[in-house]
């Protein structure tokens, strides 16, 4: 099994940390992983993206132009990455702030109102965990228990008291993904 993912949105949405938790979850189930962030001027200008690969085999290129899954959290990223999903692949997006919705017919498209849900829950910081939960509903590539272990590894111990609310976010997300096509 190899899953090649791009997560893209604004800086501050937790794009990079979502990728890191996913990568750590992969390690917890003894997979090979890579996590390659955008660190160039686009990061300094507001948008951020990360390529995460989980595989049962040695990973060749950490840099990709086609993905099994794109998790898209703003319009700029939609413009850039809708076309980068492999045929038959998955596009998961938060419609908040999206003006041009995805149109491709050869991929699976799922919508997740994560920013709205996070605001309703009064905790916008778990936005990215809701998105991660929705992704894991559609593609259960890592087990929830391994995600929790991944959280323990990727968060410094002074933040471990936040793990339960992150777990709640993931569980909320697991119920929410809505298929568009």
């Amino acid at each position: 099994m190899t899953e090649e993912i791009i997560i893209a949105g604004f800086g501050g949405q937790g794009v990079l940390s979502m990728g890191k938790i996913l990568a750590y979850s992969g390690i917890m189930q003894e997979q090979e992983v890579s996590w390659m962030p955008s660190y160039g001027p686009e990061m300094r200008g507001g948008t951020a993206n990360v390529t995460v690969i989980l595989s049962d085999e040695r990973i060749s290129s950490p840099i990709l132009s086609k993905f099994d899954t794109a998790i898209i959290l703003n319009q700029q990223s939609m413009d850039k990455f809708e076309s980068a999903v492999k045929a038959g692949g998955l596009l998961l997006y938060d419609p908040h702030g999206i003006t041009k919705h995805p149109t491709r017919k050869d991929i699976q498209i799922y919508k997740i109102d994560a920013s709205e849900e996070a605001a309703k829950m009064g905790n916008t910081k778990i936005f990215n965990m809701i998105v991660l939960g929705a992704y894991l509903k559609v593609k259960p590539i890592v087990k929830l228990e391994n995600v929790i272990k991944g959280l323990q590894k990727s968060l410094p111990s002074r933040h471990h008291h936040l793990i339960p609310e992150n777990e709640t976010g993931i569980k909320v997300g697991l119920e929410m993904a809505e298929k568009i096509n």
Binding site: K20, A23, I27, E32, V33, S34, W35, M36, P37, Y39, I59, P62, I63
Partner: peptide, 10 residues
């Protein structure tokens, strides 16, 4: 290079 420096792997 920047890729090797910035990417995370196990």
């Amino acid at each position: 290079d920047g890729i090797i420096g910035q990417m995370m792997e196990k």
